[in-house]
Amino acid sequence: MSDPINRSGLAPRFWEKKKLGQMTPQEWEALCDGCGKCCLNKLEDEETGEVALTRVACRLFDDTTCRCAQYSIRHQFVPECIVLKPSNIDEHAYWMPETCAYRRLYEGRGLPDWHPLLTGTPDSVHDAGVSMQHRTVAEFEVSEDDWEDHIIEEPLGDTR
Rank of each mutant, 00 (worst) to 15 (best):
39 C>F: 05
44 E>C: 01
29 E>T: 09
88 N>W: 05
17 K>N: 14
67 R>Q: 15
49 G>D: 06
84 L>F: 13
36 G>V: 06
104 R>D: 06
87 S>P: 00
42 K>P: 01
90 D>A: 11
122 P>M: 03
117 L>N: 04
27 E>G: 05
83 V>W: 09
99 T>H: 08
93 A>Q: 10
32 C>H: 04
19 K>S: 11
53 L>P: 00
82 I>R: 07
52 A>T: 07
74 R>K: 15
137 V>L: 08
133 Q>H: 13
140 F>K: 10
76 Q>V: 13
108 G>W: 06
85 K>G: 12
103 R>V: 01
95 W>D: 07
23 M>Y: 11
84 L>I: 15
47 E>Y: 05
100 C>S: 11
122 P>I: 03
141 E>P: 01
47 E>I: 04
18 K>W: 10
102 Y>E: 03
105 L>I: 15
60 L>P: 00
94 Y>T: 00
45 D>I: 03
37 K>Q: 12
41 N>Y: 14
114 W>G: 02
57 A>M: 09
75 H>Q: 15
86 P>E: 11
60 L>G: 07
78 V>L: 14
49 G>M: 09
73 I>E: 14
134 H>W: 14
117 L>A: 05
20 L>N: 06
20 L>H: 07
27 E>M: 07
23 M>P: 00
18 K>H: 13
121 T>P: 00
82 I>V: 15
22 Q>D: 15
84 L>K: 03
33 D>Y: 13
28 W>G: 02
40 L>T: 12
75 H>P: 00
66 C>W: 05
131 S>C: 08
61 F>W: 13
98 E>S: 03
